[in-house]
Measured scan of single mutants.
Amino acid sequence: DAEELIELVERALKEGREIILLGVRITSEEAGKWFIEWIRRFL
């Protein structure tokens, strides 16, 4: 579910982890915020 995915992304970014989803590397909080917004819009 989308909320679970958002929580995972937020937690990983807070822990300083690198996330790779759909071939996109997300390493900064700014990118994470963009990704979370995208999830909310399309899922």
Rank of each mutant, 00 (worst) to 15 (best):
K33M: 08
E29F: 12
G16P: 04
L8G: 02
D1R: 15
T27Y: 11
I26V: 05
I36Q: 03
R17G: 05
R17N: 05
T27D: 14
R25W: 11
W38D: 00
A2Y: 15
D1W: 15
W38A: 02
L13R: 03
A2H: 10
E29I: 13
L5T: 02
R17K: 08
E4R: 15
E7N: 13
E30W: 14
E29W: 14
G32A: 14
K33Q: 09
E10D: 06
E10S: 09
R25L: 12
F35M: 06
L21N: 02
L5G: 01
F42E: 01
V9G: 01
R25D: 04
W34Y: 06
I20M: 04
I6G: 03
L43F: 14
E10C: 15
V9E: 01
E30R: 12
L8K: 07
I19H: 02
R41I: 11
R40E: 01
V9W: 03
L8I: 09
L22P: 00
L5I: 06
L13T: 04
L8E: 05
V24W: 11
E3V: 11
G23Q: 09
E30D: 09
I19A: 03
E30L: 13
W38I: 04
E37S: 08
T27P: 03
S28A: 07
I39M: 08
E29R: 10
E18I: 14
S28I: 07
V9P: 01
R25V: 09
I39S: 00
T27A: 13
L21M: 05
G23N: 04
G32S: 05
L21D: 00
K14Y: 05
K14I: 08
W34L: 10
R17I: 12
L43G: 02
I36Y: 07
I20A: 01
I39T: 00
L8T: 04
G32I: 15
E7P: 03
G23H: 08
L13Y: 04
L21E: 02
F42V: 08
E10P: 00
E29Y: 13
A2I: 15
L13P: 01
W38H: 01
A12V: 08
E18S: 12
E3A: 12
R41F: 13
K14D: 04
A31H: 10
E18T: 13
S28Q: 03
I36H: 03
A2M: 13
V9F: 06
R11G: 03
E4L: 14
A31Y: 09
L22D: 00
I6A: 05
E30M: 12
E15Y: 10
E3Q: 13
R41A: 09
G16A: 12
K14W: 07
L43I: 09
W38E: 00
R25M: 10
I6L: 09
T27V: 13
R17A: 09
I19P: 00
L43P: 00
F35S: 01
E4F: 15
E37Q: 10
G23Y: 13
E29P: 14
A2V: 14
K33E: 06
G23E: 06
E7T: 12
E10W: 15
D1Q: 13
R41G: 06
R17W: 11
F35H: 01
I26S: 02
I20K: 02
E10F: 10
F35G: 00
I6E: 03
G16K: 08
L21H: 01
G16I: 15
R41T: 09
K33C: 13
G23L: 14
V9H: 01
E37H: 07
I26E: 05
A31R: 09
E7V: 11
S28H: 05
W34P: 00
E29A: 13
R41Y: 12
I19F: 06
R17C: 15
I26W: 06
G23F: 13
V9T: 02
T27K: 08
A2W: 15
W34I: 08
R41W: 15
A12L: 11
T27I: 13
R41P: 01
L21I: 12
F35N: 00
E4P: 09
R25E: 04
R40Y: 10
K14M: 07
E30I: 11
G32Q: 06
L8H: 04
W38M: 05
R11D: 04
E37G: 06
R40C: 14
V24L: 06
E4D: 09
R25S: 07
I39F: 07
V9N: 01
D1G: 13
G23W: 14
L43K: 03
E4K: 15
E37D: 08
T27L: 14
W34D: 06
A2D: 06
E37C: 15
I39D: 00
E37P: 01
R17D: 02
